[in-house]
Design a protein around this nucleic acid. Structure first.
Lengths: 198, 198
DNA sequence: GCGGTTTAATAACGGTCATTATGAAAAATA
DNA sequence: TATTTTTCATAATGACCGTTATTAAACCGC
């Protein structure tokens, strides 16, 4: 007996998921969460416990709703198909919702509160500057024949930056130097061969 | 005229840089900063302005002290040397200081406050699980001849995860789908060829 | 309809955040 | 030495954080 719950727990969880996806864990305040969910604070506490428990539930739902392509890919016939499918799916997911781009797992530690927005823009700009410098250097290399005419300097720059970002994340996660070197080696093995000058 | 400053502004800035490198922008409180710098709060405000200005100064010093390898690499003769030098240098920097690993620019939005540590561990674990799944799938592929015997499944998994992390960061920074696809294409072009079965 | 029980909304809690007012201490000029 | 100027340390500020009493409302079995 007792009073019935007046809100849909699933919908509230989905709303919280969107907020966490966009703002990360720290960046999402209860003011944000209650505004998105349309319920008051104590309702979230009674239904999910504290903030960390709510985040864990949202993370589980994220895997459930959006990361199904991982087990899906693991069943494909070849490793190349596995990788291609995961890459494609991740790109699709990362760009699917304009209001919460990227991956919730990464954004959970990437995004900050609104107060930190100017700082995040500084970092984004700093990242873009480095990539532009690389792209310009690769354009020069292409003009000099150091890279083939088929090479795409912007793609090479973006790719190199991606691997660098990824390795920074991995280093933070405790990776050893050796495995990071293996990652770098693998990345370099894709490098376009320089043209044989006539 | 007037009283002299009793602390070394450079040393205080270096101390603040270490705190920001480890905890990120939001994660670094004035309690952390003053403890590391050995000066009181108002000293930081009088010397640097507010927290954001202090972070900007620390970021500039980070580039000055630790990212000199980027312009250095840009002057090398070939694109491959540029990339190799940047990769090597980044790995060295990311693993140089045990107490603040990774890259300050990335960590600035990757690291959270101590309160968020359990959550960060959850995300790190979630990341490791996905990578393990990939590695196991690639080991199977190697056993099946889908990957050559020279292939390193752990390296391939780490590499793929690195590119995925990097693309998530880039998507957050506003990258278009097209450039992300170019990044994925470049990453796949390094994929080891399957063995020709006899 | 009534007692027991669960949920709902309001409002408050202590703690920490970045920031700063305040007044004492120290150095330079006169 | 007296005065001015700058830095120093203590401690307070208002705002926001996550969390929770408290009280009123809604539902159940009886």
């Amino acid at each position: 007996m007792g009073r019935h719950r007046e809100f849909d727990v699933g919908k509230v969880l989905d709303a919280a998921l969107c907020v966490f996806w966009r703002k990360g864990y720290e960046g999402a305040s209860y003011a944000d969460l209650t505004a998105a969910a349309g319920v008051e604070r104590p309702a979230l506490y009674s239904a999910f416990g504290n903030k960390e428990a709510l985040f864990r539930r949202a993370l589980a739902r994220y895997y459930e709703l959006y990361l199904g392509y991982i087990p899906e890919a693991l069943q494909l016939a070849t490793a190349r198909e596995v990788a291609a499918h995961i890459l494609d799916s991740a790109i699709a997911l990362n760009t699917r919702f304009p209001e919460h781009t990227g991956c919730m797992v990464i954004n959970g530690v990437l995004a900050g509160s609104d107060d930190a927005e100017p700082v995040r823009q500084i970092l984004i700009e700093a990242r873009a500057v480095a990539e532009t410098q690389l792209r310009e250097r690769f354009e020069r290399a292409k003009a000099e024949g150091d890279l083939p005419q088929t090479a795409r300097p912007d793609a090479l720059a973006a790719f190199l930056m991606a691997v660098l970002h990824g390795m920074a994340v991995q280093a933070k996660a405790g990776f050893s130097r050796d495995i990071l070197k293996a990652v770098a080696e693998q990345a370099l093995s894709a490098w376009p061969a320089s043209e044989q000058r006539a």
